[in-house]
Design a protein around this nucleic acid. Structure first.
Length: 554
RNA sequence: GGGCUUGUGGCCUAGUCCGGACAUGGCGUCAGCCUCCUAAGCUGAAUGUCGGGGGUUCAAAUCCCCCCAAGCCCGCCA
């Protein structure tokens, strides 16, 4: 409804003024939609903006196709307000199962996220990638895109060689009940200590990397074993966060099937390619001073080469590719895009997010300086369990645990997704353990409240009458949800959904406080219950888009 | 040294791409609200040179220039 009306008003303003851009925005408190077009026309017409706005408003009000939309000029602004019929339509639409879903689109999209090196567990920095990526994936599916989500498993890097060396040379047994990714991290950290003590080991590591590139069966098997072990643990963490990848793509496969050799051949034929002891691409024309090296002097490929092969493969199999990457990949990502363009291949769209650090400094798996996602989940779930136990002592142990788990994931995911990706953050335990306003649990709570009211209400007849200011404000906000989904996939910014859901919860809480539902009677009771149901459904849909469980009770 | 990103009340944050109506909300502080649909809630108060300085414009947190600060990157690592 909202989007159609937006487009209709935009067309009318264009026709009325002859301007290309209708300068239409959401009007905040003033209106559902507002235009500042009168300022622009003032220059051309050499008249006061307020007069022009008044003329436009008068002309448009005479148009019957506007129906239930009221137009008025407030000073130089042309304001549009949806009337009761339209708002009733908005509530009606918001009751649809799957509300917010957009029309099915053609073309396959591949979205790559997380892709952390399998040399240890995911830490609180990695899961920023995970949460942004998964929320984006959910928004894309809701927006009607056919989507495949991939994890690119770097199984032949130096880190993995170090892990493999550690398994071979250090006698580190797995502890009872230790998660495999944490075990791998211990081996990795210990191996790095050995290398520090004895730098000669570096040669052994280099040798392992050459063996694996050549496809030496025994070394490949050792690497795979280590990587599989770690990936098993990573998958468990992802599952706990409500995150699923459709496919794990192994980096070494591109070497094994010859794609890396083929891409090197293609790169060699580029006019920008140079071969001395290494093969590199000169990207100065594209604005990069740095050599883009794709083959070492010992003949082995580097990460960039394999990444080039991976993206070429993605380009062949998908119509659109999106990568979620940490800000440390900005340069290499730009070089990748530039090189793919030179090769005549499709470059990926890249969503970058800035770093998460600890109060004492940046995280490092190698130094063992990190807060793991598992530890975070455990701590937050413990706190959530205490909260649930205090509030709902009558529930069984199992029920309380289940709620605590959902609340914990909600708190963690929401904390991460609500912040713009371009902002660097410092991990803070106090904030992570806060379940109050502007948190995931706060929104879940609003949803549970709505459910509770509906459970107690029993049967009622759906009625669409909006009387109080709180009811009207809710309906106006409900109407915007599909537009928010649209904007989220257009701008690749999932935090818009987070902000939307929080605002909806805010509005619902205000309504809850001022407008009694169960105690009201007749038409009012029916229409308020209908509104509560619409809010319940829209909260559920927006929470689902954020990968957060919409609890019925908490 | 060069590049990218960020800088909004004590702390965190929206808005910046696409300039417009009193800069969004939270935490914390202070003052209130559970004989009333779950108080993970609600109401009110105090707190702002939108990093600094120029410029463009009828209009700048938003655009342009300069400067300052922080994070990240600048490896035959990934």
């Amino acid at each position: 409804m909202f989007q159609e009306k937006y487009q209709q008003i935009e067309r009318m303003l264009r026709a009325c003024t002859g301007e290309e851009d209708a300068l239409l925005t959401t009007g905040g408190d003033h209106a559902d939609l507002a235009s500042t077009i009168a300022f622009k026309r003032a220059k051309v017409e050499k008249r006061a903006p307020a007069k022009i706005a008044a003329d436009i408003a008068e002309k448009l009000s005479a148009d019957p196709s506007l129906g239930d939309i009221r137009v008025e000029a407030t000073g130089p602004y042309v304001n549009f307000r949806f009337g009761p019929t339209l708002l009733a339509d908005a509530v009606r639409e918001a009751l649809d199962p799957g509300y917010g879903a957009l029309q099915r689109r053609t073309g396959r999209v591949v979205l790559e996220h997380t892709s952390a090196n399998p040399n240890g567990p995911l830490h609180v920095g990695h899961i920023r990638n995970t949460v942004i990526g998964d929320s984006l994936a959910r928004a894309f599916r809701k927006a009607g895109h056919a989507l495949e989500v991939q994890y690119y498993l770097n199984d032949m890097g130096r880190q993995i060689a170090i892990v493999s060396w550690g398994f071979d040379h250090l006698d580190i047994p797995r502890k009872e009940g230790e998660k495999p990714d944490h075990y791998v991290a211990r081996v990795y950290i210990a191996a790095n200590r050995e290398i520090e003590k004895n730098p000669e080991i570096t040669k052994e590591i280099d040798h392992l990397m050459q063996l694996v590139e050549r496809g030496d069966a025994e070394t490949v098997k050792k690497f795979r074993t280590a990587v599989s072990l770690c990936a098993e643990g990573i998958k468990a963490t992802l599952a706990a966060l409500n995150v699923h990848h459709d496919r794990f793509v192994w980096e070494s496969d591109f070497v094994r099937i010859g794609d890396v050799d083929r891409i090197i051949e293609r790169v060699r034929r580029l006019p920008q390619a140079h071969e001395d002891e290494t093969l590199w691409v000169n990207l100065t024309e594209q604005g990069f001073e740095k050599k883009y090296i794709l083959r070492r002097s010992d003949g082995t490929s580097v990460y960039s080469t394999r990444d080039l092969a991976y993206h070429t493969w993605k380009g062949r199999n998908y119509d659109r590719m999106i990568d979620v990457l940490g800000a440390d990949h900005k340069l290499i990502g730009a070089q990748l895009r530039a090189t793919l363009t030179l090769l005549g291949e499709q470059p990926p769209e890249i969503v970058f997010f800035e770093f998460v650090s600890l109060p004492e400094g940046s995280m490092s798996t190698r130094a063992g300086k990190f807060v793991s996602a598992d530890e975070l989940i455990e701590e937050v779930a413990a706190k959530a369990y205490d909260e649930v136990t205090t509030r709902r002592p009558e529930l069984s142990f199992e029920e309380r645990c289940a709620i605590a788990k959902s609340v914990a994931i909600a708190a963690i995911r929401y904390d991460i997704v609500k912040v713009s990706p371009e902002k660097s953050t410092v991990f803070d335990w106090k904030e992570a353990l806060d379940f109050e306003r502007q948190s995931g649990p706060y929104i879940q709570y609003a949803h549970a409240r709505a459910c509770s009211i509906l459970d107690k209400a029993g049967e009622f007849t759906r009625t669409y009458t909006l009387e109080t200011e709180h009811e009207v404000a809710l309906a106006r906000h409900l109407a915007r949800f599909p537009a928010v989904i649209e904007q989220t996939v257009e701008e690749l910014r999932p935090h818009l959904v987070a902000a939307y859901a929080r605002e909806l919860a805010d509005l619902f809480n205000a309504f809850y406080h001022y407008d009694p539902v169960l105690k009201s009677e007749g038409e009012t009771r029916n229409s308020r219950l209908t509104l509560v149901d619409a809010v319940r459904n829209t909260l559920q849909e927006s929470l689902a888009t954020l990968g957060i469980d919409a609890l019925r009770s908490m």
